[in-house]
């Protein structure tokens, strides 16, 4: 008690903490890095609220008219809708494939190593190469201009990423729990839904969210495959940019950024990203 009174009550000159310059330097450094990471992402947001018809920085006045235009213009609205359809389908297909795949990969089987490489490969190959490949392949199977072509392309990414996330989740499941359920009369489907799935719930949700963001923001592969009918939001932003930087582009970018940020918040709630900084 006395000691604390002494410290907080009358700070004497000799007790004053010297400034820890290395510490201050480190904090400034971190702040700069953070700004460097964040600023390019959020720069565009204020410009979407401008009143003028051209993008200026800093923006002039405040209005929501560009957002209103975005949500009433059929071209933008259609791109937005397409992006959503493609992202949701990519999620469903990727997760639907990744679950049985990662369950199978817990067992030993011949060719496991090679198969894992094949599944993960699209994630490491330059997108532009996949894009070229798809452009040659997709018309052959008659899917050019079809949603399915873009969904297939995005699943090439969605599958490996959800495979990795779900496999990591499964690693932490004690096999005895599933065996216990088996001995108590569950078939493998019920074991999955009663025991495995609830235990890897966070991994499943994260995989869904990751797939969604990847697909929703994907540009290069879509660029190769998109026809006007199935134009996605990033492609539309790109083509509008070529005709001039209207604030409606900024508004649509803001929508994309907000959706992505929202997902990030959700992901970090579910897996907490603790695994990254623990």
């Amino acid at each position: 008690m006395q000691a604390s009174e002494n410290q907080s009550g009358k700070p004497s000159g000799s007790r004053q903490m010297p400034i820890d310059w290395p510490d201050v330097g480190f904090k400034v450094f971190c702040f700069v890095i953070l700004a460097y990471l964040v600023l390019p992402v959020i720069m565009v947001i204020p410009t979407a609220f401008t009143e003028s018809v051209r993008i200026t920085f800093p923006p002039q006045g405040f209005s929501l008219k560009w957002f209103q235009k975005f949500f009433t213009n059929p071209l933008w609205l259609n791109a937005f809708k397409n992006s959503l359809i493609i992202a949701v389908s990519t999620c469903v297909i990727s997760i639907g494939l990744a679950i049985p795949t990662s369950l199978a990969f817990r067992k030993r089987f011949p060719g496991k190593f090679t198969l894992r490489l094949i599944i993960l490969m699209p994630w490491f190959v330059p997108e532009i190469l996949i894009g070229i490949g798809l452009l040659m392949f997709v018309p052959k199977i008659g899917l050019y201009g079809n949603y399915l072509s873009v969904i297939i392309a995005h699943t090439l990414w969605g599958l490996p990423i959800s495979f990795l996330i779900i496999s990591t989740g499964l690693n932490s499941v004690d096999p005895a729990l599933e065996e216990a359920a088996q001995t108590m009369g569950s078939n493998s489907l019920r074991v999955f839904f009663e025991v495995t799935a609830p235990l890897i719930k966070n991994a499943l949700v994260s995989a869904v969210l990751f797939c969604f963001v990847l697909s929703f923001n994907e540009f290069v592969m879509s660029y190769f495959l998109c026809t006007p009918d199935i134009m996605t939001l990033p492609i539309n932003i790109w083509s509008m940019l070529r005709t001039g930087f209207s604030p409606i582009v900024a508004a649509s970018s803001t929508v994309v950024i907000l959706i992505t940020l929202g997902e990030l918040v959700l992901i970090s709630r579910f897996i907490g990203f603790q695994t990254l900084y623990k």
Partner: peptide, 19 residues
């Protein structure tokens, strides 16, 4: 298969479903 044998197994770590 295990589910057809009508046996009960108590594991060393008990394997209670945590959820």
């Amino acid at each position: 298969t295990p589910q057809k044998r009508q046996i009960a197994l108590v594991f060393q770590n008990w394997a209670l479903f945590p959820h």
